[in-house]
Nucleic acid binder design. Structure first.
Lengths: 163, 163
DNA sequence: TATATTTACTTAACTAGTTAAGTATTTAAA
DNA sequence: TTTAAATACTTAACTAGTTAAGTAAATATA
């Protein structure tokens, strides 16, 4: 293990370390798909699983469920459609909406994909075995930021410092 | 708080939640800089601080210290140079190397920047007050992945499942 | 019923990272 | 001492997200 300046920075390095960690794991997943010759990309599993649970969902429902921006969802869905995993049906009642659902190809391949995802899930569980609270603490951070955004927190602390 | 499908996914949603969290905080920092009319970008503070500590550093030394790829460092440094925060001096002993150091402008503005960074640091400490182990657990994950990469872990678990 | 506002989705332009491949210099080896 | 390999940096092409602005349809209002 080489020197890690971000660790030396303590709390100030946390944000970048979180990004580094999630990037690292994301690229690993991409590698696994490549090695196993699976033609999907990381993060698509959210879409597969939510459409497995709910049959159909619109773009904005997904954006809300994942707490991602709508353009982010549009990009993911367009790629998945291009590779034949998603069928898009115009909503009969509201012509603005587009109902998304899994294609036959997606439904057929889903069980195979799920073996990969559960191996990934197991890997994470194994790494967390001694510190199962990590997810709870992650949730605590999410909730606190939901309640008061990080920039508000910084600005508040800046005002206090000025005094 | 709306439904959060990533939370429902448990361990499988962790990677994306880590990204979402670090993105959220990063955008907040950008907002703070904009509000305070500060002409720097998030993550530049690593560079300011490492060059404050060590006077000069090369591109590759930085890449190693931050555990980022060299192209990532090159991009950051080029932007910082363009805005006048970094001076680049060709190394006398090795013509491949470029020694980076803070410009006068950077040194002059540094104390002001540091008030912002310490407000940010304080904000993180405040959010973590009840779960100070979060950083330790983050470090544990980093170390485990250093020891055995996430894709190796997934492939190992896949093999076990097959049996 | 015509107009204004909201909602659903899309597009464009941006940030922040990656890998792969290219150039130039230095070091090691035959 | 010439050649091969490694190192330092750069460039190109890609992924994954953002915000801001645009279009079309639905809803609310005067």
């Amino acid at each position: 293990m080489k020197n890690d300046y971000l660790k030396e920075l303590g709390h100030l390095g946390m944000i970048a370390r979180l990004k580094r960690l999630s990037d690292n794991m994301l690229y690993s997943i991409r590698d696994v798909y490549r090695i196993k010759n699976i033609d999907i990309e990381p993060n698509w599993h959210f879409v597969f699983l939510i459409l497995k649970d709910h049959k159909t969902r619109t773009m904005s429902e997904m954006a809300e469920a994942f707490q991602l921006s709508q353009p982010a969802v549009v990009k993911i869905i367009n790629k998945m459609k291009k590779r034949g995993y998603i069928d898009i049906v115009q909503d009969g009642h509201d012509n603005r909406k587009r109902q998304l659902r899994l294609s036959k190809k997606a439904v057929d391949l889903l069980p195979m994909f799920e073996t990969i995802w559960s191996a990934g899930q197991l890997s994470i569980r194994q790494m967390l075995q001694d510190n199962e609270q990590f997810l709870a603490e992650l949730e605590s951070l999410e909730q606190q930021l939901q309640h008061k955004s990080f920039n508000e927190r910084i600005l508040t602390n800046l005002k206090c410092q000025e005094k």
